[in-house]
Design a protein around this nucleic acid. Structure first.
Lengths: 238, 238
DNA sequence: GAACCGAAAGCGAGCGCTCGCTCGGCGAAC
DNA sequence: GTTCGCCGAGCGAGCGCTCGCTTTCGGTTC
């Protein structure tokens, strides 16, 4: 099973690639021609935006705040972003791309439903840990988005539930999991994963890292989904 | 066990009392003297504020929006609220009072840990259902509060976890619950309860009401906390 | 290497607008 | 007639964004 450290490294490489791709997509609107400079500054703009927004909210962040935080003047900022709204769109696009790429990574080897559930849980937690600012931002700002962006966010939520529901259904068919409503169970799993990036302070003050949290969540979920006969064994072995 | 309908009625009565109390507390700052008029309008101001804020965010709600929604002119509004910030404080105070009063309601009769856990879960869900706009507001706006209000919100979160942790600890001592870290388990229960008021759209589109959600959460949690021997019986009986 | 030049990138005061909030005037009620 | 409550135009501040100007960069000429 992949460790968080390895995972984090992959994500960090991915992030720069994605920023570069966003630059190329929006080349027509960005007035800065030298790609390396532009990508580096765009990345900084995104990072600072997430940081300030997650403290104050995106609306409450003024472009002057962002200018001060990045060290880029007002005028120069608008050479990189078309408007504050488009900045938000670019940031959302960046996160969606990252999620899409990670989710198409296959689990290391074909596994049984229980192993697959564990892999799914860990992968989700690791991803949201590596990109915590983005996930927090996306969760908290959803209601300020325009309709299209809100629908995309809801679809994202439902899609990730589908991964879990599919896995649960497969487990039920193989007799490994209890025959509970898989959609509902998946819906209950989601907030357990989201709590990790929404209330970091709670776990940080208890010195719980993402690996420990993953273990605890798995131990919490499995008794509810595994057939009772298997449950006892599970509770005992970690 | 109390039904949601009964519970909701109690809360509705409580709400008016609390608005009246808030009026009396802030009498010095409110320029309107006739109590009945003032309380009625204050209640309307709170309701409309929650409604607009939960759609757009509190910051994005302009006082002009609120004036239009309540039918009270700008000038008159400021006869009821000292400032937009104080309005936020009053609303937070209202919710805190309601929570405090409900939480001091005793469970109908002394029960075993398992029954008490069920009662706690249902009471929490019913409360957040009856006052969903407030809980949603409080959750989403926390980061915009000043430090004191933020600390109060965090304390509220931790306090409600403590209820669950205490209950779990009692169950462990009596041999009913598994000897897991009660604080951590309580921390995982919290997001399951919060999902109900944070993502209503998800459950509404599946026609799941608060009673059904409570049942599902109980069925999901109990296998994780009950001793395995008892677990099998639980999974079978609802 | 120095001097020069056009293009690229950066700068920040200022624009129009909306925000939270105020205040002088006004009608209704006792 | 005095009091109470309501009204909405108007205030300074701060917002997103622009634009005329300056600085920096990279190549060319002597």
């Amino acid at each position: 099973m992949i460790s968080y450290g390895d995972f984090k490294q992959q994500i960090d490489t991915l992030r720069l690639d994605i920023c570069r791709e966003i630059y190329r997509q929006n080349k027509a609107l960005i007035r800065v021609k030298k790609e390396d400079v532009a990508v580096a500054r765009l990345t900084a703009i995104f990072d600072r935006t997430l940081e300030i927004s997650n403290r104050l909210g995106f609306q409450a962040m003024s472009v002057r705040d962002l200018s001060e935080a990045t060290g880029i003047s007002m005028g120069a900022l608008y050479a990189y972003i078309e408007s504050k709204d488009k900045l938000l769109e670019m940031i959302l696009g960046m996160g969606r791309m990252a999620v899409a790429r990670v989710m198409t990574m296959e689990p290391p080897e074909p596994v049984d439903p229980r192993g697959q559930l564990r892999w799914l849980l860990r992968a989700h937690l690791f991803l949201t840990e590596a990109m915590q600012p983005w996930f927090y931002f996306s969760y908290m700002e959803t209601r300020h988005f325009d309709q299209q962006a809100r629908e995309r966010a809801m679809e994202g939520e439902l899609m990730s539930e589908r991964y879990f529901a599919d896995c649960l259904r497969a487990g039920v068919e193989q007799g490994v999991f209890q025959p509970r409503d898989p959609e509902f169970t998946a819906a209950l799993i989601k907030p357990l994963l989201q709590d990790w990036y929404l209330k970091r302070w709670k776990y940080r003050r208890r010195n719980i890292d993402v690996e420990a949290y993953a273990d605890a969540v798995i131990a919490f979920i499995e008794p509810a989904v595994l057939q009772p006969a298997v449950t006892a064994g599970c509770a005992a072995n970690d």
